[in-house]
């Protein structure tokens, strides 16, 4: 009995709410609209399957993966493909875009500049030492370098991106 009273009271309170508040009506929506089937296309059209026309479609479709390198005799840009680096104590692998993984990270509003060398395999400590002897004359202060063997990367304080890229390309990496 008590439950009944409670429900009737609730209903009454609802009815007062309805009279006072505006009810939003949704006329159509994604869920209640019928499924689209058999669209009536009134325009006349011709269906063609000519290979001479389809080749233009294939030509402009974006490739799904990065294209492989086609080796050239001469490169006019700064690019140079990786040479034969099998019998080396360490390797700096190329990225999927065939580029050398040396990056500059600028932080603290342009104040802090760190050079990252990534994708290093093999004797990373030897590479660290060789880079230090190469880069130290460019700096007035002792070079600050972090060699991370686990991630295969070296972080150097300062902007040495172009110098390291040049050094690596000279050695066919």
């Amino acid at each position: 009995m008590t439950t009944f009273i409670n429900i009737s009271r609730l209903l009454r309170s609802c009815s007062t709410l309805r009279t006072t508040k505006h009810i939003s009506v949704r006329y159509s929506g994604f869920i209640n609209s019928p499924f689209l089937e058999d669209v009536q296309i009134k325009a006349k059209y011709e269906v063609t399957k000519s290979p001479s026309e389809w080749k233009y479609v294939v030509r402009i479709l974006p490739p799904l993966t990065v294209p492989e390198l086609a080796l050239r005799d001469k490169y006019n840009s700064t690019f140079k493909p990786q040479g034969d680096v099998k019998d080396r104590p360490y390797i700096v692998c190329r990225t999927k875009n065939h580029m050398i993984p040396v990056y500059l990270k600028i932080s603290q509003r342009g104040v802090k500049r760190l050079t990252y060398v990534r994708k290093i395999q093999g004797d990373i400590w030897l590479l660290g030492k060789e880079l230090e002897t190469y880069l130290q004359p460019m700096s007035k202060r002792p070079l600050r370098m972090q060699v991370n063997e686990f991630t295969g990367s070296i972080i150097i304080n300062g902007d040495y991106v172009n110098a390291i890229k040049y050094w690596l390309t000279e050695r066919d990496y």
């Binding site: 059209y45 011709e46 269906v47 063609t48 399957k49 000519s50 026309e53 389809w54 080749k55 233009y56 479609v57 030509r59 402009i60």
Partner: peptide
């Protein structure tokens, strides 16, 4: 290049509707 305005390209059936 090679495709005119107004054409519809169907990639699934590999046909062009003109």
């Amino acid at each position: 290049f090679g495709l005119n305005p107004g054409w519809v390209v169907n990639l699934k059936d590999k046909v062009i509707l003109k």
